[in-house]
Nucleic acid binder design. Sequence first.
DNA 1: GCCGTTTTCGGCCCGACTGTTTTCAGTCG
Length: 575
Amino acid sequence: MPMTNKEVAAFLERVGEILEIRGENVFKARAYYSAARTIESLGEDVSKIVADGELDELPGFGEALTEKVSELVRTGQMKYYDEITADLPEGIFELLDVGDVGPKKVKLFYDKLGIGSVAELEAAARSGALAELPGMGDKSQAKILAGIEQGKEHRGRWLLSQAVPLGERIVAVVEKLEGVKRVSLGGSIRRRRETVGDIDVLVSSKRGAHVIAEFTKLDGVERVLASGDTKGSAVFSPGIQADLRVVEDKSFATALHYFTGSKEHNVRMRQLAKDRGWKLNEYGLFDGDKMLASKDEKALFAHFGMDFIEPELREDTGEIEAALKGALPDLVESRDIRGALHVHSDWSDGRVTIEELAREAVSHGFSYMTISDHSQFSHGLDEKRLGEQWKEIDRVRRIAGGIDILRSCEIDIMKDGSLDIDDETLQGLECGIASVHGSTELGAAEQTRRIIAAVSNRYVDILGHPSQRLLPDQGGMAFDVEAVLSACAARGVAVEISADPMRLDLDWRYIKTAKALGCKFAIGLDAHEKEHFGWLTYGVSMARKGWLEKGDILNTLTARQFRERLGRRRKRRKA
DNA sequence: GCCGTTTTCGGCCCGACTGTTTTCAGTCG
């Protein structure tokens, strides 16, 4: 089984960490980190790039990395890795996950005390041995113990949907503090990454110490990690860390740009500044000692002759070049979406009646909705029950004002690629969504054949959550993404971008590739209760991260256009 | 380990905070 991009990236990340722990040249380690990020943000499979012999064309891939990564992708192993890890204990990497512990301290702990796991670190801290080490003391020891405790409670990343409400609450409170001029979320939450490690908030004020002090007293603060004049850091219930930075208002635009990132985007922007003889940092854009005024981010980009780059695009995947050429996409917005697709009712595992769903959809401004309950394999409806449901849909359609309701179904894709509803019944659907739920462990080749077989059924209009990934940490199943996307494009089957915060699937990294292959998209809610209509914003964010415009997305069409489009496609497929 | 119409060798982002230090190292973002 070929390694996924994520696996290759994680491997390279680890090589970088080992090099740092070993005390090698930090720039050598950085080369591996940079390679890891490049692989992670690829819109195509690294195994394909290796097979095509095009790995050395990626930025940051010279002779050594090309050879080592090719070996890794082909054989699943890297001799170099075995060499540099041979004399290190296996658990040494987990030490890096402890707060306030970096490669230098790992090396120190290992060299002096032979510590090679978090358990050993904890024992050493409790015995007081850590405090005796050079450069360490009681406070450092206590901090490390606290870090170990926190790590036990929670590790890793949070869903975007968990972070956004907290982030917005912090902004709302801080905005009202005395002496605060401007406030914004920054970091990965502003870029709308599908998961975030922490919440970044930027504030402009002349009263930094006061703002930070108030921030650390907010409702929900469990622990204060740092509290200075310009920077504060606290852990909020249920364990999400938030960092607040305070700058002068004249620095707000450059600071916001800086703290929004991504790091890769920032590196490119600083380089652009350097090329022009300027200097860009969080405090401003400088020509010598002179600060080039930027009242907001738009003005900042304008200095470079660039169009404003929406935060979602700032991943260094071509947005800088496009902005310089004035060729950025006109990104889709939530208000462009007219149809609520992929809605489950209490006919399967949803909590709400069709009639209530209709009312809820109207209140969110949708003008049509597809009732897409599960089919029999996922404990949903069989052919007979579907027929009965259609009568109920007809009834609600007559009484519900201002909304069109389409007969739909989330049809299960069987292990062999067939569907669990017969064609005669499928013919009666107005929108067919086919999804994989079971048998996710097939090999990549079989999985690919299976999905392509399913989207080849003429009554399938949309491929639901293609990868079956579950955030924050469960990767998707193994299959040839490009082959499936090509099949969808050829058959006119739209690819779902699930707005379910645990899915957000198709992965935005593949969206640009999908569009280039000719795919259309459908933002699906996968709603099971009323509150889930609010998920739309997350689906739209992913579409935006994938550079999509209104015209790329089927449910920006009016109800009538949507029906016509699906109808036309079906006629073509019959012919 | 990568990279180059300023360089094929010598750079590679940099500032805030903390704790341990009498001037700095490590971590983080």
